[in-house]
Amino acid sequence: MENVQKKLREEAKNLLEEGKVDVIVGYEQGTLPLTATPCFISDPLEAEKLVWNAFCVQNLAKYVHDVIFLHRESQKRVKPEDRKKKVVGVVARGCTTRSLLIHLQERQYDRSEVFVIGVPCTGYVDKKKQSALLEGEEVLEGVLANSELQVKTASGDRKVALAEVLADNCLTCRFNNPLISDLMIGEAAPPMDADREFEAVDAFEKLPIEERWAYFTKEMAKCIRCYACRNACPSCYCKICFVEQTQPRWVGIGEDETDTQVFQLMRLYHMVGRCVDCGSCIAVCPMGVDLRKFLKKLDKDDLEMFDHRAGTSLDSPAPLSTYRENDREDFIFNP
């Protein structure tokens, strides 16, 4: 980790100095202990700010999309001959590169507009798990050393094993190494326990229908519709999201519980073949809605029905944008 971070800073500095990239989207130290936050670096001297550790949570592909589209917007009023191309560098782990691949596949930007600095990933810390283990106590100081979080809270020093606080999606991650990169930093990370990725989904599928519905309504009742999940999701990049559309008004804006359920249901459904299981939506959710239980099902269906995994190859198109003659038909009603 330390070496990767050191190398990352060097390489980032070089890239900026050489003008290969105009801005680097990476992570910097957060304002609270044991956190990291996304940052944008365009000055080579600031490359020292970059960090790479187990607290880098957000999927940066979201910001790459934002930066490129802001730049495009700013170029609209510039004479065509004076328009500048901007290359965005991004510190990308496996799931981030998958999101980038989805963007490229969906023709959001050109491959030459991004410079992928690949980093190996061994999983990130789930803040909610950490907070639960510390019984909600505030972290005053903390360091990560030897796969252990050494934390100082108001009630004294605590130690928490890193494996216990890793996010669920990281524990069963299949693609923790970058799938595409222009520059790879560090050795490939060891594989995670990918064979168990659908365990929770399989168990949930076996529950009786009323229990599944009860769980869905219980989880969705937590949702306050802050739309943080949508804002954090790299696959949610529509200029006008259906929740804000008024003609037609797809989702009511009151506090009716079914409006929340319909919002979540449709946002989840938009992720068929587009969710890379990066966990950003779950990490930003202030209410702790168990979105992964539902997102992972879409992942499973994507694999079983369409033989596709989101963002793993530029050649396989998004499953709902294509078809096969022999797609499954067992759900078709025959009187």
Binding site: E205, I209, L265, L298, M305
Partner: peptide
Amino acid sequence: RKFAALKSFLNYIG
């Protein structure tokens, strides 16, 4: 394809 995924998902949530 759209409806295969939709039906499966609706069934999944109960």
